[in-house]
């Protein structure tokens, strides 16, 4: 048993303790790297949870202020007439290069699928009129001599084209 004198007092240190201190393995580089990765991962998860909560709250607030709208819903209520029809014409005065109108057209296509909307409308039996104002819609109907079949609550009109090839035969 080793002894030391410190301040006049002698202390005895067990050889077992000395052996344990000398043989305790130091943290290897690999273990340190692993510990670092795991610690950072835990920190990132905590950060993610906070960010997730913030994003969730912001999006919920946005939805409460402005409810979710799918522009394509304006084209609902026409599917029963179009049963069995593969393609219909799509007539509009809106600029389809503008993102908002392009999105509306794409969503209309989705709502009415499997019916295809063709902007080259003239040869089709049915034509969907989606105009910015009712008077423009009626102007198109008169100009192309279409027969209106149905108008939904959003002002979208489904009309029949008597001059289409299919109708002629």
């Amino acid at each position: 048993m080793s002894t030391e004198k410190a301040g006049g007092l002698s202390t005895q240190i067990s050889p077992k303790i000395i052996l344990a201190m000398k043989t305790r393995p130091r943290c290897s580089l690999k273990q340190c790297a692993s510990a670092l990765i795991l610690t950072i991962a835990c920190g990132m998860i905590a950060f993610n949870i906070r960010d997730y909560h913030r994003t969730f709250s912001q999006t919920r607030q946005k939805r409460q202020d402005v409810p979710y709208t799918f522009l394509g819903i304006q084209f609902s209520g026409l599917q029963d007439i179009l049963t069995g029809t593969e393609t219909i014409g799509y007539l509009t005065d809106k600029d389809l290069n503008a993102q908002q109108h392009a999105m509306q057209f794409a969503q209309a296509q989705f709502m009415l699928a499997p019916v295809i909307l063709d902007t080259n409308f003239s040869g089709h039996e049915y034509i969907l009129l989606d105009c910015s104002r009712p008077d423009i819609t009626w102007a198109f109907i008169n100009k192309f001599r279409l027969q209106p079949l149905r108008r939904n609550q959003f002002g979208v009109v489904l009309a029949r084209n008597p001059r289409s090839v299919k109708v002629a035969f």
Binding site: E86, Q109, F110, P114, I116, D118
Partner: peptide, 27 residues
Amino acid sequence: AWQVWNIKAKFLFLGGGHWRNMLQPSL
């Protein structure tokens, strides 16, 4: 989702014998 994937699912599910219309180059 609605322009590419789900619209194709609708064509397949509801298109009957005309499901191949979704493969037209015009779309």
